[in-house]
Computed example of a mutant assay.
Amino acid sequence: MSLILKAIGLGKWFELSLSHQMKVSPFQNLSFEVAKGEFMGIAGPSGIGKSSILKCLYRTYLPSSGEIWFDSSLYGTIDLAKATERQITHLRIREIGYVSQFFKAIPRISALDVVADRLLPLGYSLNQARDRAMQLLERLNIPEQLWQAYPATFSGGEQQRVNLARAFAVRPRLLILDEPTASLDNDTKLNVLALMKEMKQDGTTMIGVFHDWDVMGKVADQILDLRKLQASKEQEQMAGM
């Protein structure tokens, strides 16, 4: 299978100014490959850098080192670590989706239009976009009486379902998921799993962090276990001493 994403020597660190300058590195020298249409899960304990990796892939964070080669239909093979902000913006609209742990509700915009608005830049008419949004809100168990309500007034679980509906509305080449099912009930988790499997069948590549290993195991083709990688590197360092 051909690759859609290849990370080489990826690293991120943050400089903290306390009583003295301190550098914190959630991960460093990380390399992995993801094939087109594959789902890669990222596992490891809290604080090991799982979410930071996803943010580097989406370019919410600028990587401190390394390369992220992405097979783009817009730009060909492009290094996301060095792409311009304009290129990243275009990729986010058309090729790379992201589901965060926390939904940032847009004031005074209905749940229906929060989802539908994601489709308008892709050439959908307003009616087509709203039809697609209604289908997804229904599948994700958002009651119809809430479709015209503002997500800012919703519970955390309801907001996350709107967040997922917005991401699933399109078929990006790459979808990045950060704890997408953490606040969902079991029935909605099953619906989310079904939607992810449908997207895989349509060719979408996914990279995700899941609190629930059972959920991740049902969709992942490979799992990048950061704890094992960390232990392996420590053993190599000890052997070289």
Rank of each mutant, 00 (worst) to 15 (best):
T205C: 15
Q159C: 07
K189E: 06
P107Q: 08
L126H: 12
T205G: 10
L190F: 10
N141I: 07
Y150A: 09
G123T: 09
V99H: 02
D117E: 13
G203S: 10
T205Q: 11
L120T: 07
W147Q: 07
Y124P: 03
T181I: 08
A149D: 11
Q135T: 13
A116F: 02
G157P: 09
K197N: 11
T188Q: 03
L119H: 04
L193Q: 15
K197F: 05
A169K: 00
G123V: 11
T188H: 01
A105I: 04
Q145I: 06
L164K: 03
N163Q: 11
N186H: 12
L146R: 13
Q101V: 11
E144C: 09
E198W: 11
E144F: 11
N186Y: 12
T188G: 03
T205S: 14
L122F: 13
F210E: 02
L174Q: 02
D187I: 14
K200C: 06
I207E: 02
L174M: 07
M196Q: 10
L112Q: 02
T181W: 00
I176Y: 06
K189N: 11
P143F: 10
V115P: 03
A165D: 04
L175W: 08
D212S: 10
R118I: 15
P107K: 08
M199A: 12
E158P: 04
D131A: 12
F102S: 12
L112M: 13
R118Y: 10
M196D: 04
D113G: 06
F154R: 01
L164N: 01
L137C: 08
A111G: 03
L146D: 13
L193T: 06
F210D: 01
V170D: 05
V170Y: 07
V209Y: 02
I176A: 06
I96T: 01
Y124F: 15
L195E: 14
G123A: 10
D202I: 11
F102H: 12
E95A: 08
Y124W: 14
A105P: 02
A152P: 03
Q101C: 13
